[in-house]
């Protein structure tokens, strides 16, 4: 059992939890992920490691309540236990000393991009962060990202924070203004990463994306997380999750992401029924 030692609500759908998992914390690095299972009968879901504290023996995860498991997890409190928590899985991000980088986070992806921005900042890079959300109420980690960025741009789809547009709009502006980035990191929805990669390709800017496909074991055993990269099939769990954005077949990845959409919906409806029932009782 793995104890939730701290919980913080970042926005109505996004929650942060610090989990007691000393064995995982001991080896965790930015870019890696964990797989958790909340209860017996639950599914195994991968979540990127948002932060870790080796001394305290804790690992921080940030998740958006979209499916049954994340909704259930969201109802849990400090002191509650998660049944299974395994990691660190995947290859750690190879972050070296870059001169100038753009770190792009879309929605929840901001939480995953943050440790990368932090590490690059520590390594001495000039960090320009662009984070995007649907509206101003959904903005997360603004202060944290700001603290590790030389420049921060917060974009909203609806312009409710006074800065309407997609992260790609801002990135394009910055590139056109003459910023010479030697690395772009893009983490967020597949469609966002696809368009960031499309934008940086003609400028030949190295672009790293983080894939988070459907998977079960996270150790290379099921092959459910297949991603086509440069025409070759890779397993995101052991070969990734970071890949060269210019080589990833995003259309295939988007398609594969929808494989269990109707099941997920079904599962969620059943869950909602049960929750509703419990509340009425």
């Amino acid at each position: 059992m793995y104890k939730i030692v701290h919980k913080r609500v970042l926005n109505p759908q996004v929650k942060l939890m610090e989990i007691e998992a000393p064995v995982v914390a001991r080896k965790a690095e930015p870019g890696q992920f964990i797989i958790l299972r909340v209860y017996d009968g639950g599914e195994r879901i991968p979540l990127t490691i948002a932060d870790y504290d080796r001394d305290k023996g804790t690992v921080t995860i940030i998740f958006q309540e979209v499916g049954k498991t994340t909704k259930l997890l969201g109802t849990m409190c400090e002191g509650d236990n998660i049944l299974d928590f395994v990691g660190p899985l995947g290859v750690a991000s190879h972050l070296e000393a870059y001169k100038k980088v753009a770190v792009i986070g879309g929605g929840l992806g901001t939480a995953i991009a943050y440790p990368q921005a932090k590490k690059l900042h520590q390594l001495g890079a000039e960090v320009h962060s662009i984070i995007g959300f649907r509206n101003k109420d959904l903005v997360v980690l603004e202060d944290e990202v700001k603290a590790v960025s030389d420049e921060l741009y917060v974009m909203t789809d609806d312009g409710s924070n006074g800065n309407k547009g997609f992260v790609t709009d801002m990135l394009q502006k910055l590139i056109e203004a003459g910023n010479q980035y030697d690395l772009v990191i893009a983490i967020g929805p597949l469609i966002m990463m696809k368009f960031v990669a499309k934008l940086t390709k003609p400028h030949a800017i190295k672009t790293i994306v983080s894939m988070n496909p459907v998977m079960i074991d996270g150790t290379g055993m099921c092959g459910g997380c297949r991603v086509t990269v440069g025409g070759e099939t890779k397993f995101a769990c052991v070969d990734g999750p970071d890949f060269d954005g210019h080589l990833v077949d995003f259309d295939e990845a988007i398609r594969r992401q929808s494989m269990y959409k109707d099941h997920e919906q079904h599962s969620l409806e059943e869950h909602a029924c049960k929750l509703g029932g419990a509340e009425n009782a």
Binding site: G42, E43, R44, D217, M221, E264, S267
Partner: peptide, 22 residues
Amino acid sequence: ANEFLTRINLMKAYTFPQTDTP
């Protein structure tokens, strides 16, 4: 086959949606 069987045997997909893995 690994994925198909793991979903069914270990994750008990044959009892979905009582269990969560489809």
